[in-house]
C-alpha cells in the first residue's frame, strides 16, 4: 500500500471526487486559487457540486470554468460579482447561492477544521443573514449562531510544500487556504514547488502537514490578475 501523500498530478490527486460532493476551495478572487485542480475537475466531470469559496471566479477562469460546464449546483460565497455566467445561471434558477459574510465564512471553515460545531458572532445580527438562526445576547449585544462548514474535499493552493504536506503560502495568496486546508475530509494541496521533508524551516510553516492528505506539484500557473492597477495615473 502506498502511504505517500505525493501524487503525480491534479487528476490523480482528485481521485474519488464524485457527483453531489461538497468542495472547499481556497483563494480570494483569482489570487491563490488551485488552478490545476479546477482544470482537472473540468476534465473529470463530477456534477451537482457544492463549492464553498469566497468568490466564484470570472467567466473564463477560476471556478467560473466549472460554472460554464454546469458542474456546480450551489455556491457558498461572500461575493459573486465579476461573473456573468454566474449571474445568468442564478437568475435562471440553475444555481443556488448562499451568501455568507466574509469573516463568518472564514470562521465557519476554521471552526469546521477545529472541531467546533457552531459559534456566536455579532456579524449580521439584525440583518437578513440572521433569519432562521438563533440569536443570543451577551453583555447586552446580539450575536447569531453560525454553523461550521466541512467538505468532502478541500482544494488548496500553496507556494511551497513538502512531501509530508507542510505548506507555506505567499503574500495575500494565503487568504482562505489555511482554513480550507483544515476542513476537508480529504485535503488536496497543489504547490508551485514541492520539496523533500526537512527542507522547509519548521518555524516558517503556515499549515502543518497533518491537515493535508494529498499533495502534488502544480504546473503552468497563469496567476491571472483581475484588476491590474498601477501607480502611474493614480487611482
Amino acid at each position: 500500500m502506498n502511504h505517500s501523500k505525493v501524487f503525480p498530478n491534479a487528476q490523480a490527486a482528485l481521485e474519488g471526487v464524485q457527483d453531489n460532493m461538497t468542495l472547499l476551495v481556497g483563494g480570494f478572487g483569482l489570487c491563490g486559487i488551485p488552478e490545476n485542480c479546477i482544470e482537472a475537475l473540468v476534465k473529470m466531470g463530477a456534477k451537482n457540486l457544492t463549492c464553498v469559496s469566497n468568490n466564484a471566479g470570472v467567466d473564463d477562469f477560476g471556478l467560473g470554468l466549472l460554472l460554464q460546464t454546469r458542474q456546480i449546483r450551489k455556491m457558498v460565497s461572500s461575493y459573486v460579482g465579476e461573473n456573468a455566467t454566474f449571474e445568468r445561471q442564478f437568475l435562471d434558477g440553475e444555481l443556488d447561492v448562499e451568501l455568507v459574510p466574509q469573516g463568518t465564512l472564514a470562521e465557519r471553515l476554521r471552526a469546521g477544521g477545529a472541531g467546533i460545531p457552531a459559534f456566536y458572532t455579532p456579524t449580521g445580527a439584525g440583518t437578513l443573514v440572521a433569519e432562521g438562526k438563533e440569536t443570543r445576547e451577551f453583555e447586552g449585544r446580539p450575536y447569531i449562531l453560525e454553523r461550521a462548514i466541512t467538505g468532502d474535499f478541500a482544494l488548496v493552493k500553496a507556494y511551497k510544500g513538502d512531501t509530508f504536506g507542510n505548506l507555506v503560502f505567499r503574500k495575500t495568496a494565503r487568504n482562505f487556504n489555511p482554513m480550507v486546508a483544515t476542513a476537508g475530509k480529504i485535503t488536496v494541496a497543489e504547490v508551485e514547488e514541492l520539496v523533500e521533508v526537512g527542507e522547509l524551516d519548521p518555524d516558517q510553516i503556515h499549515t502543518p502537514g497533518v491537515f493535508v492528505q494529498r499533495i502534488f506539484q502544480g504546473q503552468n500557473y497563469q496567476k491571472r490578475i483581475e484588476k491590474l492597477t498601477l501607480n502611474e495615473g493614480g487611482l
Binding site: 469566497n54 503574500k171 489555511p178
Partner: peptide
C-alpha cells in the same frame, strides 16, 4: 505581483512593517 492584491482585487504593494495573514486572522 499577482500574489499581492487588496480586497478590491487590485494589485498593490506592502508598506514597511506590513504583515500577511489568513482570512480567519484578518477577521
Amino acid at each position: 505581483d499577482p500574489d499581492l492584491i487588496n480586497a478590491g482585487k487590485q494589485t498593490v504593494t506592502a508598506a514597511p512593517g506590513a504583515s500577511y495573514f489568513s482570512s480567519a486572522d484578518s477577521f
